[in-house]
Amino acid sequence: MMAGNVVVVGGGVAGMEVAGQLARSGCMVTLIEKESFTGGHVREWHHLFPDRRNSREVTDYLDRQIDHDNITLMAGTTIARMEYGKKVFTVDTDNGTSLSADAVVVATGFDLFRSERKEEYGYGIYDNVITSADLEAMFRNGAIKRTDGTTPEKIGIVHCVGSRDEKAGNIYCSKLCCITAVKQAMELKEHISDAKVYCFYMDMRMGGALYEETYRESQEKYGINFIRGKVSEVGETIDHKLIVKVEDTLVGRPLRMELDMIVLMAGMEMSKGGVKMAQIFGLKTGENRFFAAADHHYGSNASNVEALFLAGSCTAPMNITETISHARAAAAEVINYLRKAER
């Protein structure tokens, strides 16, 4: 049995999985989460791609993972200060607790791109322009309605909002929005069977397990329309319909389309909490502002700080499968580190 105190920052998928794995290996874990609940973004999602299972199944698993005597959960807490000396971290939280740790795992996750920043898409300005997260909330409530209470008949899904967009300051691909769009398009058709759903994409990046199959199904079984072109701007008509301006780059013609609702596929960005941790712990970040891991290939959990490890989507956009794998790898790195330090 190996002992060691570990502080895990962030109680989302990665943080919960790391905490669970470490606790089971005999470490004493303090899990710090800024919100009052754990589970992060998954808690707010309804169904998950690619098999469209209920997200509850995943959060239930994660809850079981952190249900362990060795884990102290500190929800509604953030880190204020940190000192490192003689191989021991002294971490002060904002509510006055001082923790001592042999290792720290940062799992601060991501923030969704604030779609207001793409003002030309009219989020926060026009009614009925919503984000992928807003749509999940609607799915959970069981009703897809416009703000005036009517059911939308023509729905547009805009890919790459805040991703692959130099002007928005993010040149990277968020990786999950394509498949999320396909999943949500199919679900929209299930809710409103006679709705027409249009996806406006730059490239369809279907690189994950079962992604391509889902994409094919969405076209063959659900009749989702995929239009290749980046939406330039959204306007509103007198009767509150939305107008998208886009170039259909496969046909090579500009297109104006009247829609009842627009869903913006908000990309993933380095979280605000992560930026704060980078300052407190002196962590390096990359061009994309996510944490820079020590090595792309064999050190994706190691950071530039000794005894501090990274887990999950605070290093790059990741889906849940990848996040859990990455978290387990982080746990293995922590255990190896503590064993070495023991000797």
Partner: peptide
């Protein structure tokens, strides 16, 4: 201004 609809509104 069409790219900043808050202004035209």
């Amino acid at each position: 201004t069409h790219l900043t609809p808050a202004v035209s509104r």
